[in-house]
């Protein structure tokens, strides 16, 4: 199936099987390996990307559902002002250990702050409820959201 979509700001025409997962298209066809496969079932958030500005699990999306969509991966988001703030905040809060979950959390934090520029504790927990981290115990990640909120005031 021929699929027209936008990937990290560039228009692409994919010629792929319609059942191929976005996760595999990104990692294998485009070598965009920030997205990870943790569970492959929508439960860990390691594969998260932005689709039309909202966080989604790339392991659950078949190519056929990409028609006309705008996809941003952690690589594409990284250099943006918000991306830089979130990266700084995660580092400063000590929220990165092995780093496997981190790209997914970056996407989830962006989506969260987009919806709630001044999130409550409940908003933060809810917004990050789709991401698992086996190293940090989450507290530092919650803290990084607060840091990003402060440092990036006005950006969201």
């Amino acid at each position: 199936m021929k699929i027209e979509c936008t990937l990290n700001g560039q228009r692409k025409t994919l010629d792929v099987s319609s059942t191929r997962r976005l996760l595999d298209i990104l990692r294998e066809d485009f070598h965009l390996t920030a997205v990870k496969e943790g569970c492959g079932e929508g439960e860990c958030g390691a594969c998260m990307v932005l689709m039309d500005g909202k966080a989604v699990n790339a392991c659950l999306i078949p190519a056929g559902n990409l028609m006309g969509k705008e996809i941003v991966t952690p690589e594409g988001f990284k250099e943006s002002p918000r991306g830089k703030i979130i990266e700084e905040a995660l580092i400063e809060a000590g929220a990165v250990q092995c780093g496997f979950c981190t790209p997914g959390f970056v996407m989830a934090i962006e989506s969260l702050l987009n919806e709630h520029p001044h999130p409550t504790e409940e908003n933060i927990r809810e917004g990050l409820s789709g991401n698992l981290c086996r190293c940090t115990g989450y507290q530092m990640i919650f803290k990084s959201v607060r840091l990003a909120e402060e440092k990036g005031a006005g950006l969201w």
């Binding site: 059942t19 595999d24 929508g42 659950l60 078949p62 559902n65």
Partner: peptide, 19 residues
Amino acid sequence: LAGGTDLMVQNARGTGLSP
């Protein structure tokens, strides 16, 4: 297939593979 959140998981074949 609408969102695929049930179908993609029910027909998954494992790491790196299309369902």
